[in-house]
Design a protein around this nucleic acid. Structure first.
Length: 580
RNA sequence: GGUCCCAUAGCUCAGCUGGAUAGAGCGCUACCCUCCGAAGGUAGAGGCCGCACGUUCGAAUCGUGCUGGGACCGCCA
């Protein structure tokens, strides 16, 4: 149920009528026609740009088309009034029972109200987090995790078949470093002094790994050369780190569907096959790259490498897939991995990456474009930094000093729900401030609290109504006569609820879950406003002498609660029923 | 030098893939309230949407060129 979509269909049908009647020429493209809420409430309930969009292709003045459309639209029973305004806007006022329909839909469908079939069951793969398995997740990863998970929920809500995927970078040199670092902790577990050389991971989180190694291998690895233990220890430590990361994700409420391993691509011919596929397209060649301009590299010397002609698919320079020593660059397994995703039949790929991967976007898009024959779009969302604050003071992180903040630190202090909501209060490509003190504040300044509080108030109304013996189950409320709601503030509330399905659609199309958080804040704002008006005007309170009137008002409140719950569901935040 | 991102009220930010007189919160000003429908309320002031061209009925939004801030820039991931 999407009222805006319904009315848009009505407008498009009216255009078709005019074409049939010979008023408008045939073959008009109606795609650009929009029906949206007007900025000014005095302009009615909905506005459409149809007349202005069609004016040029139809070679008619916008006002002429607008007048003709207005005449048609007035004959529809849903439309109470049509005005032609400005350069050719059509402002529509709808009959009150349509708003009643919105409330009724929310009450009968519950949090399904707002779901759509926009995605048409298409398979989309959302890859996110993909933190290196060399340590616990830190704050930097939290935002990516939340954005990715919320996006996955948003797309699932909008009719996509979603797979959440984590790519484990367990094939590169960094896991060797992990193994060496763990080995030192293993020696430490035997009472020896660990030698944490420059470049190794110094974190305490490896101490339990060393202990577990001792439990597993006893003293058999002591004083052995690296060649003896490296592979086994790498495997072991990586596994432990991934267990830790899984635990971190669980704390945040993130559940992956698939974990893919980079290492598993080696030795299976998958990398070779992906590169060969590109080679068959004539996109692989041997050559030398120009040195990067403006950046002086002391040790630069031109070398012949195997290059991917990514410039043929929109990149700025060709990219190496093989190093001069014959080993793969990190790009090669990534190509193979994305090729694998394409071959698994996804219609759309989304990667959520940290902003430091910006230079990587074009080459990956080029690879996917080439390997899928342009069939599978890859959308890469870069997530900007999170700046931590404590009481307004910047909170400095340093890996060396051991003061880096882990996901666990954040969630333990702020809670998973608050953390998730806050991470979505900014669009992904803008840096975000996270103040530990502020996010726990119980005031209007805190959007999480404000939204939760609105829902708690809805539940408080329901509790009181029940205590007063007013029937207020959803079925009863859905049948309530909303014709009794006449006040402008109440109608505005219903209008806001009508926007929910439309908002979801817009957010899903743009892959932007933060829009849901902003909508919820506005919705909560409207609800609190209505509530406050009840302090002055007793007639606006939700509980009245007359049961039928009470039920109509409670229905509106309950519908608001339903939409808040639906929205929080997309954000992965648990609604609270009562503030404490 | 190149690529990507950002620039909107004093501050922090929204802004519907191009719509009408550009919005919210904080802060500020003035009133009201201190009642568990509690964890404040109402109203007001405040704008060259970084700058300049361009695209068209119409631009904060799209294009080009600047300015300022951030991230990244063979063989590390």
């Amino acid at each position: 149920m999407n009222l805006f979509a319904d009315i848009r269909s009505l407008v498009v049908a009216a255009v078709a009528d005019l074409v049939a009647a010979g008023v408008l020429p045939g073959g008009l493209d109606t795609a650009a026609i929009t029906v949206e809420p007007p900025r000014e409430a005095s302009h009615g309930d909905m506005a459409t740009n149809a007349a202005m969009v069609l004016a040029k292709p139809a070679s008619l003045a916008p006002r002429v088309i607008a007048d003709a459309l207005a005449t048609r639209l007035r004959t529809d029973p849903r439309v109470a009034r049509v005005d032609v305004a400005g350069p050719g806007f059509l402002n529509l006022s709808l009959t009150p029972d349509l708003w009643q329909g919105v409330v009724k839909a929310a009450l009968t469908m519950g949090t399904e109200y707002g779901k759509s079939s926009l995605g048409a069951g298409q398979k989309v793969n959302v890859e996110f987090v993909s933190a290196n398995p060399t340590g616990p997740m830190h704050v930097g990863h939290v935002r990516g995790a939340v954005v990715g998970d919320a996006l996955a929920r948003l797309l699932a809500y909008s009719g996509w078949n979603v797979t959440r995927e984590y790519y484990i970078n367990d094939g590169g040199a960094q896991v060797d470093v992990l193994a060496r670092s763990a080995y030192e902790r293993y020696r430490e577990a035997h009472g020896l002094d660990p030698e944490i050389a420059e470049g190794l991971y110094p974190g305490d989180y490896l101490i339990p790994v060393g202990q577990a190694m001792k439990d597993k291998w006893g003293a058999t690895l002591l004083d052995q050369p690296e060649s003896v233990w490296l592979l086994d220890v790498r495997e072991f430590a990586t596994r432990m780190m991934m267990d830790e990361i899984r635990g971190d994700l669980a704390m945040l409420g993130v559940q992956m569907d698939v974990f893919s391993s980079e290492k598993a691509l080696y030795g299976t011919g998958k990398i070779e096959a992906a590169i060969q596929t590109l080679r068959d397209m004539g996109l692989i060649y041997e050559g030398t790259l120009e040195p990067p301009k403006g950046k002086t590299l002391d040790d630069w010397e031109p070398r012949v490498q195997t290059l991917f002609r990514s410039t043929a698919h929109g990149d700025d320079v060709d990219r190496p897939v093989m190093k001069s020593d014959g080993g793969w660059t990190y790009f090669a397994p990534d190509i193979a991995y994305h090729f694998d995703k394409v071959q698994r039949g996804f219609d759309q790929l989304i990667d959520i990456l940290g902003a430091d991967h910006g230079g990587y976007v074009k080459r990956m898009k080029a690879a996917v474009s080439a390997l899928s024959g342009g069939r599978v779009p890859l959308d890469i969302k870069l997530v900007q930094l999170v700046k931590l604050f404590k009481n307004g003071e910047p909170f400095k992180m340093s890996k060396r000093a051991g003061t880096f903040v882990t996901l666990r630190d954040v969630v333990e202090q702020a809670g998973a729900d608050v953390t998730r909501f806050m991470m979505l209060t900014r669009k992904n490509d803008v840096a975000l401030d996270f103040d530990f003190a502020k996010v726990l504040e119980q005031s209007k300044d805190n959007p999480v609290f404000y939204v939760q509080y609105a829902n708690a108030r809805v539940n408080s109304v329901l509790r009181k109504a029940r205590d007063a013996g007013v029937a207020c189950d959803d079925a009863t409320l859905a049948a309530a006569d909303l014709g009794k709601l006449g006040h402008e503030a109440e109608l505005a509330m219903a209008r806001k609820l009508a926007e929910w399905p439309r908002l979801v659609e817009i957010a899903a199309r743009a892959n932007e879950p933060h829009r849901v958080a902003f909508y919820l804040f506005e919705l909560a704002s409207d609800f609190h406003g209505l509530w406050n008006k009840g302090n002055d005007e007793a007639s606006l309170r939700f509980l009245q002498e007359d049961t039928a009137i009470s039920q109509s008002k409670i229905a509106l409140a309950r519908a608001t609660g339903v939409v808040i719950c639906a929205g929080l569901g997309i954000l992965g935040v648990t609604p609270v029923e009562e503030m404490r």
